[in-house]
Nucleic acid binder design. Sequence first.
DNA 1: GCTAATATGTAGGAGTGCGAGGTATAGCTC
DNA 2: GAGCTATACCTCGCACTCCTACATATTAGC
Lengths: 114, 114
Amino acid sequence: MTVKSDLPQGTLDLLILKVAELGPVHGYAIAQRLQQVSRDVVQVPQGSLYPALHRLENRGLLAADWKETETGRDAKFYRLTRKGRAQLETEAASWQRLTEAVGLILRLSEGGAE
Amino acid sequence: MTVKSDLPQGTLDLLILKVAELGPVHGYAIAQRLQQVSRDVVQVPQGSLYPALHRLENRGLLAADWKETETGRDAKFYRLTRKGRAQLETEAASWQRLTEAVGLILRLSEGGAE
DNA sequence: GCTAATATGTAGGAGTGCGAGGTATAGCTC
DNA sequence: GAGCTATACCTCGCACTCCTACATATTAGC
């Protein structure tokens, strides 16, 4: 039974921090946002989402306040802390460095001599 | 204690399959190759490398033969099976789809309206 | 004989994603 | 007001992978 593995380990944190950077959002909206922007490529199940949010909050990367949604429901709004912003920059840079490196490797035979 | 996390989960398999596609190589050479081509961004510790090779072999994606290196040492040369080639194509496509999606998300605020 | 590089391997812990389950409210239809 | 869907939160436990540390054997150089 192979794992579905929609997202590689560690990527979810990066994406959540990124969405939180744009302004306070609650978890459910984060998942919807990721799915919309990625055109359904990124789909975050709740069993992945909420544990991730709690971990990020425990690490001090996110801070949360209970507020009311426009529709009148209670929701936990997350915002990026100063520490979280630094972490986001670091992880985003790592991601870019890594994807470039993997890209180099995957194009090994296609490009031929480089 | 944060994990060093050089490579996201699942990426290592993709890279190994890719190197094996170029021709029969032994494990030690795969790790060196990845490090060289990626300009030291990708560094595969032996504790990650060999278990990954065994798993890929058990899944029938790689096949191995003991041969001698140019330097005279015994080494296990891995080559891509037909099944492994198909898997490589699938994973490479998934990787590209994913990186594009993540790229879209990471550029959310920079580009503003797009 | 000692060290370094080559080449392979295992064991155990740590961390994360996900399926499956549970709770509660708002709004809609009937 | 009964039932349904969507919203919004949560937890448990399994599965999987990565990595540190350790162990082994050979070749080359000093």
